[in-house]
Design a protein around this nucleic acid. Sequence first.
DNA 1: GCCAGATTATACGGCAACCTGAGTAAGTAG
DNA 2: CTACTTACTCAGGTTGCCGTATAATCTGGC
Lengths: 156, 156
Amino acid sequence: MPDPSSSLPTNALLRTAYNALSARIYAGVKAGRDFDDLRPAHGNAMEQLELEDGLRLTEMAARAGITVQSMGELVDDLEAKGYLQRRPDPHDRRAKRIHLTDRGRNNARIAKQAVADAENHLTALLGNQHYQQLRRALQQIIAGDTHDDERRGTAP
Amino acid sequence: MPDPSSSLPTNALLRTAYNALSARIYAGVKAGRDFDDLRPAHGNAMEQLELEDGLRLTEMAARAGITVQSMGELVDDLEAKGYLQRRPDPHDRRAKRIHLTDRGRNNARIAKQAVADAENHLTALLGNQHYQQLRRALQQIIAGDTHDDERRGTAP
DNA sequence: GCCAGATTATACGGCAACCTGAGTAAGTAG
DNA sequence: CTACTTACTCAGGTTGCCGTATAATCTGGC
């Protein structure tokens, strides 16, 4: 197959680049240890607890940009597999705080490293200057589209 | 919500930028006319027939990088909605050729325009030079990861 | 000409990762 | 105390794929 990427819309380039990079990170996580029972979507939850332990479900869903129910499923799964634990919030008996277990913390550390490796890979591939430019361009796209779409809503 | 994009991994930036751009294109297609019955995935099929009419299912699936069954579903749906038509291949009685109807051709034209609009939007947003650089960087990421992942396969 | 094996399309079932809608329990404001 | 809001759970649906299996047809070797 001749490389068709030069004629593809930028749209498609973004998606393919994202997939490639995600696969790299995901492979890095799974290669590290016995974390075969994690699927990419679980990263949505793990990522956040790595930064801030003891979040509530609602908060996590909002940060990940998915519904509370969806995040609930991920957390259910991760709890069953021993990566994290729900504990009642002492100050609000409606809420539960979600904490990493030792296993979860261990995995989070490796995931963090895999992400860092991917960033280093990009810097090496593009050169630091182009790497920074890429990030700036992506941020502009994200910010630029937010303005226009705010009133019109995103696609269903 | 304070803009967190500056600290996000490049990975996440790629995904969000992709989503933003896709939503823009998709909105463009739907705004143009009465194509409310199309979902984003249908683009996988329409895109190709726009370039080359009368392809077979197998060919389309291979080009889109999805299975024959998945493409079959999309084609079923598009056929039911009057965007395209299956006609027997006169030279191979196993095969069917997939052709755009008038409605399909009309939609393809609008979709093409929506993609072009999105590219123009990007050029205006980033400046032509940075736009070109973005595309180059994405192509490098795609090509760069292909080499490494070829033997190891992509993530499940 | 005929059979083995590949190709083309379809049918059926399953799964991941989301969603909407409807509920319960607990907190908060008047 | 009532009315509203917040946090979470339960049930069920949708989208977009995949795997396996089957029937019809084509192709190459004999």
